[in-house]
Computed example of a mutant assay.
Amino acid sequence: MNAFMKKINSEEMNVKKESLHQFKMEDLYGDEFDFSQLKGKKVMLVNTASKCGLTPQYELLQELFDTYKDKNFVIVGFPANNFGGQEPGTVVEIAAFCKENYGVTFPMMNKISVKGDDMHDLYKFLTLASRNGVQDSEVAWNFQKYLIDEDGYLVGSKSPRTLPNDAEIIEWIEK
């Protein structure tokens, strides 16, 4: 192996993955949410929207959360208006919609942008391999799912059309 290749390989080995646990955000109710409180839990992060054809996934997300919340698993929702203006509401409207229509009890963050020039820093972490150490990705639509391990590291992502109760997701939670 030549010196140039050794340098590249050593640089790749020294890439420090970031962790979900470094982030703090405001939730839908204006309270600070420190992601370090999720240490030791598997986490599914989902960008959500109230007026999308995939919005009924809220029901499946809540069922999944209810089933596994006592088994070191949590779901965190991120309302975003990036796709077709499908999350136009205020945080108060979003909170009421989620509670009244789907009984959502998993943590919901304040409305953010999940793509584009104003992408929230947490989503930059999720979508850039240089930060998450796993993959580059793009948020394709509402209800894309990112899976995070107990140490806060990205494991992978699932398509918006992959249902929350998909066998691969259940297997990942249970292992």
Rank of each mutant, 00 (worst) to 15 (best):
K175A: 08
V74L: 02
F125N: 05
T90R: 11
Y102H: 14
G40I: 03
L38F: 05
F4M: 15
N72M: 00
D66C: 09
V15E: 14
T162F: 08
A96T: 15
F4C: 10
M44G: 03
L147F: 09
P164A: 06
L45N: 01
Q62P: 03
A129Y: 11
T48H: 04
G84N: 04
A3Y: 13
S159D: 13
Y153E: 10
M5R: 11
D117P: 03
L38E: 02
Q22D: 11
D34V: 11
G53N: 08
Y58W: 10
F125A: 00
S137C: 14
G40L: 02
E150F: 05
L64H: 07
D117N: 15
Y146G: 02
Q144S: 10
K99Q: 12
D151C: 09
Y153H: 09
N101Y: 06
S36Y: 13
A140T: 12
D149S: 05
D149L: 03
S137W: 09
N142P: 01
L38A: 03
Q86A: 02
L64T: 01
L45H: 02
N81L: 03
T90H: 10
M1K: 14
F33Y: 13
F35D: 00
K39S: 08
S130F: 11
H21Q: 13
M13N: 13
N81E: 07
S36M: 11
D166H: 06
A95F: 12
G53E: 01
D66W: 14
C52N: 14
V91D: 14
F143E: 00
S50F: 06
K7N: 13
S19H: 03
K39M: 07
K99N: 12
N81H: 09
E18C: 03
G133E: 07
P56E: 10
Q86F: 06
Q57F: 08
D27N: 12
D166Y: 01
K115G: 11
N110L: 10
W141T: 08
Y68G: 01
S157N: 15
N142C: 06
M44R: 00
Y102G: 00
G103Y: 03
G53R: 01
E32R: 06
M5S: 13
L122G: 05
G152L: 05
M1D: 06
E59N: 12
V134L: 10
K69A: 15
V91A: 15
K124L: 15
L38N: 04
Y58F: 14
V139Q: 07
Y68Q: 00
K145D: 00
G116H: 03
T105I: 11
Y146F: 13
F78R: 05
Y58V: 07
F73P: 00
V46P: 04
S50Q: 13
N47Q: 06
S157L: 09
S159A: 11
S113H: 15
E93M: 09
S137D: 12
F78M: 04
G77S: 07
K111V: 05
A140G: 09
M13L: 14
M109H: 03
